[in-house]
């Protein structure tokens, strides 16, 4: 690990000023990504600014049924919060299926959105990687790409976005609140993640030093019957091969409202809008789900080892829809 300096920020304004004004400074929150990146030499700041003392770790119930998660709220605290569990079970489940209990105690919600990809070539300083070293190529193409994405890829990058929570948050239409040197602004979660295109090094539409102060989830009826299904080789402590976050409201046997996120198969937390469109008003039954899933995955691009993920993603989505529909039928809220 390269040497770097360390400082602790006392308040949000100071933190934003410290990092925003210095391209060589980076935030340190839970550390589960940042310390890992420092150790493998992908992150190379001259200084880290520890923001763990900033007063943005709260979890707040909003009037009208929404929830506001502080940027530094820990994953474990967000997952345990009664409002999250009751109103947005899909998020609580996604959080608890992410990483391990220890990592969830450390990792912040903001950091979860900012985490880096797990692509082995991104992590290996000796390999070609357009995300780490723009223009160097993509060693994952033709490499060991079993875990790589089939949706949202480009010829420059096929790394999978690793977050579970962000998949749920995209389905929940969450908003990211930022504070930068220019002030505060908000970005819809789906817009917060950029497709790699020909600039895979650019992952978010934000400036250096902009800080996630909160993630806000709006109230919605369908979110109460929501579910997260994560498929992975082993039973726990592994990134998804495929996952689906589903919020579904069925009325009179038809899909009244549905929102779907896909994980493990795409370069960003994937909002399955094609599938949602296909499901609108459709009979709440397996045939509809299969049609919608096929629609969503129609644009998927298989690589050397990961073609199975296309079929797996379809089935994961179908299963998640079925499960969620059965929750609604029983009137359960998760």
């Amino acid at each position: 690990m390269r040497p770097f300096a360390y400082t602790r920020a006392a308040d949000v304004a100071a933190a934003v000023a410290e990092v925003g004004s210095d391209p060589g400074s980076e935030y340190l929150a839970g550390g589960t990504t940042e310390v890992d990146m420092l150790r493998i030499g992908v992150a190379r700041p001259r200084r880290v600014v520890d923001i763990n003392d900033l007063p943005i770790s709260g979890i707040e119930e909003l009037p009208g049924g929404g929830v506001r998660l502080g940027g530094l709220a820990r994953m474990s605290d967000a997952a345990a919060h009664p409002a999250v569990r009751g109103r947005f079970p899909v998020l609580a489940q996604a959080l608890e299926k992410g990483a391990s209990a220890q990592l969830r105690n450390m990792a912040s919600m903001g950091g979860n959105l900012m985490q880096r990809v797990r692509c082995a070539y991104f992590r290996d300083g000796g390999a070609a990687c357009n995300k780490r070293a723009p223009g160097s190529g993509c060693a994952a193409l033709g490499g060991v790409d079993r875990g790589h994405a089939v949706l949202g890829t480009s010829e420059h990058c096929i790394a999978t976005h690793p977050s579970d929570a962000a998949v749920a948050l995209t389905a929940l239409d969450a908003t990211v609140h930022l504070r930068g040197r220019a002030g505060e602004r908000s970005i819809a979660l789906d817009d917060f993640f950029l497709l790699p295109g020909d600039t895979p090094e650019r992952e978010h539409p934000i400036e250096h030093g902009e800080l996630i102060t909160a993630i806000e989830i709006p109230a919605s009826e369908e979110a109460r019957t929501s579910h997260y299904l994560k498929v992975r080789d082993r039973e726990s402590y592994e990134f998804a091969l495929a996952s689906a976050a589903v919020a579904l409201l069925v009325e009179d046997g038809r899909v009244a409202r549905v929102r779907i996120g896909l994980g493990g198969v795409a370069t960003k937390p994937w909002r399955a809008r094609r599938a949602e469109a296909a499901l609108a008003g459709a009979p709440a039954e397996r045939a509809s789900y299969e049609r919608a899933a096929a629609e969503e995955l129609a644009a998927a691009v298989p690589r050397r080892m990961n073609a199975f993920k296309i079929e797996l993603a379809r089935r994961t989505m179908v299963r998640a829809l079925e499960t969620t529909a059965s929750l609604g039928a029983r009137g359960g809220t998760g």
Binding site: L28, G31, T32, D36, N105, M106
Partner: peptide, 13 residues
Amino acid sequence: GRRVLGCLTLAVA
């Protein structure tokens, strides 16, 4: 009082 990973935590923090 919370379980965390020492390898991903900086001592100074």
